[in-house]
Write a protein that binds this DNA or RNA. Structure first.
Lengths: 342, 342
DNA sequence: CTGAAAGCGCTAACAT
DNA sequence: ATGTTAGCGCTTTCAG
């Protein structure tokens, strides 16, 4: 086991001190170019690697950002993460990712783990099970900046980056109405989660503005995964007065719905129109391709990370807003395009 | 900024010393139950959190495993990661994840970053661009255990966890032949990557054993993403003697192929049969659903992590194998089921 | 059963 | 421009 080479070794070999080596390595202005070169050459030669652990302990910061998401294999989240990484890396920060699998207990575990590793900041999109704020208390107590994105905790004063879900839903449902659909169903998630509640609001608002009566039987709250979508579709289509369109708060549930419709010989978009949410990659590859809302996930990640770097790092900016809202963009595809336009 | 509570604070308040507090917290046998209780109660009361950075510096290990994958938003990789996390967390280890986006430069960056943070082990599936071993040298030099999985570096003596890709491919192609397909095309990736080379071997072997002539025009090497699949399909179908089936080394490329076929009015599986690779979740949701090979991704992750814990941690096991091979499982779905059986 | 003391590798005031 | 010194928070001999 070759012991790892430290700053001390380099100093000894160059007949100088650790401080000089440290400074040389980090391009400190008051070190002569000659010394810098000698130090660096030797560092490379000896295959020296900074020990960030030691550096972090000393400097009191870990130079890493902790990110907590429900699951990493969603395009939405993996793009957000990519955005965070882009900004963080540019600032010399690392990113560590945890997934909660949409479980509250796992979320608490993730927080504990990140706190122990002394991340400088936590960016989080909460799990489906998260209602309370207790497990975030510790983060606040330890003075670790906390930024919520997408699925946020609203009972707190902490910063939030969200989509304008209500507006997105409103635009989506209006689009369906324009295409001539009359009875529009809606798949939604738990009402205590901002995004689902807001999307439902947008849905209701669009119906009202178009004088379409609201039918509670057409609003289904479920897990929003593939199977829930499949089952939900069957459920609403068995009504005496079934819908002719669906606005789903999730692309996965919309996919389930599409497959139920296909299995039962409905023609999309003629018999039935659909709009999903999130612009997951598969939505453009399936047939019919799925109309959906793009949430600018990459940008959302960048914003979230920048909140930390701007708000908590530099005092020179007067960053007073607590909540940043990004407008989603409707991507119209085959599943809802009943009328052809020029 | 409330300064964070340390072991020293607790010691002061209890009129004891840091060593005692440290031991009490870690359930050291030679601390009285009374003391343990007092320490722990106070720790909770004061909201004490170990500073892993300090602990790691002292103990010389970070208790974290570094994982490097091409991209996290593939079901295959995210499942492998889940497997790794499961094993690691059980051992009190954390996991940090890096993605290379299939770029060599990013891969090198990830390695550097993980080395700096002094991860205790690196588990990696290499990028599409990775041919050499140079950037792994440093890992070996620093005595950090290195485990390859799935896409592995074969020119080294390091441990590898792989699928039996050749066998998987062999089984897949045999299945197509059994279903009556006569001319089977193949989409593959760079030949210097084990998985693609081995799958191609399996494909060739199956053809040979069934006395089917090999036609090089039917073997396409591309990026294996959706677009490459779409374009590749067009390319082979324009041949004077086009294929009637495809074995694709990637589910995404197979999806592209399916869509080209649909766009051109081919009927699947009657006119054309397809088999993909990896059992990505979407393969069961599209129509026709895609026959593919499941790689036991979760298990692969567990194996990879356990290699570290068994081989590098405990000396009591004689773990001599350098390469562990897992048999993939053919999942037969609509895209290749031409003959109906009982 | 508990305390004293040293040190992990690095950084940064404070010298010189 | 470089050296001296102290210490980040924890663990771990070694002594009682």
């Amino acid at each position: 086991m070759a012991k790892r080479v430290t700053i001390q070794h380099l100093a000894d070999e160059l007949n100088t001190t650790p401080s000089t080596v440290s400074r040389a390595l980090r391009d400190h202005p008051s070190i002569s170019v000659g010394m810098k070169k000698r130090v660096r050459d030797l560092a490379i030669l000896r295959n020296y690697q900074v020990n960030s652990i030691a550096a972090n302990l000393r400097s009191g910061q870990s130079k890493t950002i902790g990110v907590i998401v429900p699951r990493i294999n969603r395009d939405f989240f993996s793009n957000v993460i990519a955005g965070i990484e882009e900004v963080a890396n540019k600032q010399g920060y690392g990113v560590v990712i945890c997934q909660t699998h949409d479980e509250l207990q796992q979320e608490a575990n993730c927080i504990e783990a990140l706190l122990r590793t002394r991340v400088d900041c936590i960016l989080i999109s909460i799990s489906l099970e998260t209602k309370g704020f207790e497990h975030f208390k510790k983060v606040i107590d330890m003075n670790v900046p906390l930024v919520f994105f997408d699925r946020v905790q609203e009972s707190s004063k902490t910063i939030r980056i969200v989509n304008n879900d209500e507006k997105g839903a409103f635009v989506a449902v209006n689009h369906l109405i324009e295409q001539g659909y009359k009875r529009i169903a809606h798949f939604t998630g738990p009402g205590y989660i901002n995004i689902y509640r807001n999307r439902k609001e947008g849905y209701l608002k669009a119906l009202k503005e178009n004088d379409i009566p609201i039918d509670k039987n057409l609003i289904i709250e479920n897990k929003l995964d593939y199977q829930a979508g499949y089952d939900g579709m069957r459920q609403v289509m068995k009504l005496s007065n079934p819908p002719d369109a669906l606005f789903s708060s999730s692309d996965y549930a919309a996919l389930g719905a599409i497959n139920w419709l296909k299995d039962n010989n409905y023609k999309i978009p003629n018999d039935f129109g659909l709009v999903g949410y999130s612009n997951e990659k598969f939505t453009s590859h399936i047939s019919p391709s799925l109309t959906t809302l793009d949430q600018h996930s990459l940008e959302m990640g960048k914003y979230a990370a920048n909140v930390f770097f701007d708000r908590f790092k530099s005092e020179d900016r007067d960053f007073i807003l607590n909540s940043l809202s990004i407008n989603p963009k409707l991507i119209i595809r085959e599943s809802s395009k009943r009328k052809r336009k020029v």
